[in-house]
Every structure is written in C-alpha cells, then in structure tokens.
Design a protein around this nucleic acid. Structure first.
Lengths: 107, 107
DNA sequence: TTTTTTTATCGTTTTTTTACGATTAAATTT
DNA sequence: AAATTTAATCGTAAAAAAACGATAAAAAAA
C-alpha cells in the first residue's frame, strides 16, 4: 500500500497517515457519515446513496475496513457495516498528541 | 487532484477529504510534526530531517500548503513554513460534526 | 561581478488509486 | 431445483501521486 519507503518513517507517522489516507476520498467520507448518522448497520443501501458502481463502493468499503474505520459482518446474503468508534478516537488522539501546539506561531 | 467526480459529492465531503488526503502520507505527517514541535519556522531543515530528495520534499510542502495545512513565507533565499492552526481546528470540527456518534453501535 | 546557496519547478518514470463491467459465490425465493 | 438477490472479487483502463535528477531563479557571500 505504501511506497516501500514506509520503513523510513516512524510508527506514528505511518499510523496517522494510514488513517488519514483512508479518509482522503469524498466517497469514503460519505460512507462514514452515512454510517454514523443512522444508528444501525447500513448495507447495500450505501450503494444506493452513492453515485458510484457497486463494485467501486465495495472497494471503498474494503479500504475503510482495512484501515480500521469500519467493521463488517455478514448477515445472510447481506453485509452489514458500521463505524468503529475507537478509530475516530485513536485518530483524534494521535492528531492532538502530535500536532499539539506550543501555543505560538511565527509566520 | 480529485477525480472529476468531485462534483458528485457534497461540499463537506470534499473539504474533509481534501484535508485528510493531504495528511495521508507519512512524509507529510512528519513535516507537520516537525513544524508543530519547534515553535519557529523550519525551512530547508525539513529536507535534512526527511529521507527524501529536496524536490520531493518541496512537492509535499506544496501539497500541504494547497490544502491549507501550512503557510509559507519567503525570507531572503530561504523559505519559511509554519503550521496553520486553524486548519487543525477546522479539521477537528468537521470530524466531530459529521462523525458524531448517536452513542450506539450495532455490530 | 562571479560564485554559492536555497528552493521551486520541469520532465519523466514508476507505483498506486479510482472506476467500471463482468463474473463468482452464497443465501433466499419461487 | 431453478431463479433471483446481494455483495465480493477479478481484470483492466485511465488518472493521480510519488519520487528523482536536472534545471532555473533569486538572494547572499565571496
């Protein structure tokens, strides 16, 4: 997934970047927002909401899942996804920890 | 930068995705962390810290600048960058606003 | 003025991402 | 059992990102 130079950076940089990268597409944001709104698992309905082909949405779901943003369970023929709250927390914590300002700016 | 389908998504989805995308590379995270640590502008020193060619770092800086994460000022021959605190705030706000949990999960 | 330093930009190659249709596989319906 | 529905995966094409060296442009030092 990363460029082979991943090893050149720290654990934290890679973790944070990976989480952010998964967030870096409007379709994936839309999916997360949809999942966070309805407090139940949305499944193929996501496909109906997005202006993308089923296979493409499936791909985006996979990306989000691999990054840990969502988790999916199979329920019969259907597939149910939901938001991983811990991911959001972890992300926020990482952001706060590493970009915490020493309350000053220069330019 | 976006795929031409950008128009298919909402303002918010695009904004959030753009900010996140710029964060989606370990080198760019490393740059932001460096800028946030020393409470002064770091310039070409960033190049020394990263395991990348000067031109590549320059590219990453440009990406961060375009996304609004940093701003740069020219000072003589040197170029001085610093973190844009508002970007972090804006990002956090967007995240919180749109991924706010209705305190329940299903799977 | 010439040389050096510093950083941005150009041109190019390689890798990754995005997107889609087609196919597959599994569970329901009929 | 056959047909249908749901979602993942495959193959592929097109677009974007990442990386680098070379070059350019501007300021500073010699």
């Amino acid at each position: 997934m990363a460029t082979g130079k991943t090893a050149s950076f720290g654990e934290m940089e890679n973790n944070l970047a990976e989480l952010a990268k998964a967030l870096g597409h409007p379709a994936r944001i839309a999916i997360l927002v949809a999942l966070s709104r309805r407090n139940a698992c949305v499944c193929g309905e996501i496909v109906d909401v997005l202006p993308l082909a089923q296979s493409t949405v499936s791909q985006h779901l996979k990306a989000l899942k691999e990054a840990g943003w969502i988790s999916g369970t199979v329920e019969g023929v259907k597939s149910c996804y939901c938001l991983n709250r811990e991911a959001l927390d972890r992300f926020r914590t990482l952001l706060d920890t590493f970009l915490k300002e020493p309350e000053n700016t220069c330019c």
